[in-house]
């Protein structure tokens, strides 16, 4: 079987600093994207655990699998969760969700949680779409712009290039920076045509690093256009899988003349995390309403 360079590592994590949790305050967010699925668990708005896995052929199974990983880490069960929000393109396929909320709203809330109240512009670079989101100091969306015409400028496009060049996807960012001078960007918008162009450049004698630099530059230019079309206000943060690609991030920073905020959190969990935060807020509101009617 041929080596698959596109395969990024699935992850799961449990907060070692959190001793226990209050059952009535446990909320979950499940983000089913086109390429990856995340489940995040909060207790009283504090991060308990999360899992990030590849989305399979069946969205419902992906939701269950991601949650199962979280449960394996915590010993919790579905019935312990007070409120679950489903988000992402597969949000309607989270069978145990109490509410669905779009990934745009969730990413803004998740980025607000991760990066704090100063974040105003969020670029979410997902598997098959890109979103530029402008939010206020509470993480509420003020405006957004979305581009999902095709895989160009997204994680899936990067996966295709990883396989084509035989470079593990986690190494692409670093290697794209190992060039003396950035070559001109790949001109094709379409991943299929970009593949042809990459083949041509390799035959011309370009190194893999040069080709990766050209591809990362093209991706950065495309998303920079999206950012300019919406509203670019600092502080700026990037979420989604491509946020882990330092080659793309550095180039976006250069093109937009900004520095992206840094965090120890996994950038891919922002959507699910936002869902869990919103789930918590909704739970509190419902409890308040119930108290009022008592």
């Amino acid at each position: 079987m041929a080596e698959e360079f596109w395969r990024w590592s699935e992850t799961s994590w449990r907060n070692p600093d959190l001793e226990g949790w209050q059952k009535g305050t446990l909320t979950a967010g499940v983000d089913i994207g086109s390429t990856s699925t995340q489940a995040v668990l909060l207790s009283d708005k504090r991060l308990v655990a999360y899992a990030s896995i590849r989305t399979g052929a069946n969205s419902k199974d992906s939701a269950h699998n991601a949650m199962r990983k979280v449960f394996d880490l915590t010993g919790l069960r579905q019935e312990d969760i007070a409120f679950t929000v489903g988000t992402g393109y597969g949000r309607v396929n989270v069978p145990f969700a109490d509410k669905t909320i779009t990934e745009i709203t969730c990413h803004a809330k998740g980025a607000h949680y991760i990066y704090g109240s100063t974040v105003r512009t969020i670029l979410d670079m997902g598997g098959q779409d890109c979103k530029a989101i402008h939010c206020d100091e509470t993480g509420r969306v003020v405006s957004f712009m979305m581009n999902d015409k095709c895989a160009a400028g997204t994680g899936r496009g990067m996966e295709v290039i990883a396989d084509l060049l035989g470079v593990p996807i986690e190494e692409i960012g670093e290697r794209s920076l190992q060039v003396e001078k950035d070559p001109p960007p790949i001109t094709s918008q379409c991943v299929v045509f970009a593949k042809t162009e990459v083949g041509h450049l390799m035959r011309e004698g370009w190194t893999k690093e040069q080709v990766l630099a050209a591809y990362c530059e093209a991706m950065a230019e495309r998303v920079a256009r999206l950012l300019r079309q919406n509203e670019m206000v600092e502080d700026f943060a990037i979420t989604g899988g491509i946020a882990k690609n330092i080659g793309v991030v550095k180039r976006i920073e250069r093109l937009m003349h900004v520095k992206a905020l840094q965090s120890d959190y996994d950038s891919q969990i922002a959507g699910a995390l936002g869902g869990a935060v919103l789930g918590y807020d909704l739970l509190q509101r419902r409890k308040k309403r119930a108290r009022k009617t008592e």
């Binding site: 393109y89 509410k99 779009t102 709203t105």
Partner: peptide, 20 residues
């Protein structure tokens, strides 16, 4: 229609200022 729906829903969520 699905992609338009996501944008429509997110826009409504944005205008509502909340999600409930």
């Amino acid at each position: 229609a699905g992609q338009v729906g996501v944008r429509a829903e997110a826009f409504v969520e944005m205008l509502e200022g909340g999600t409930d």
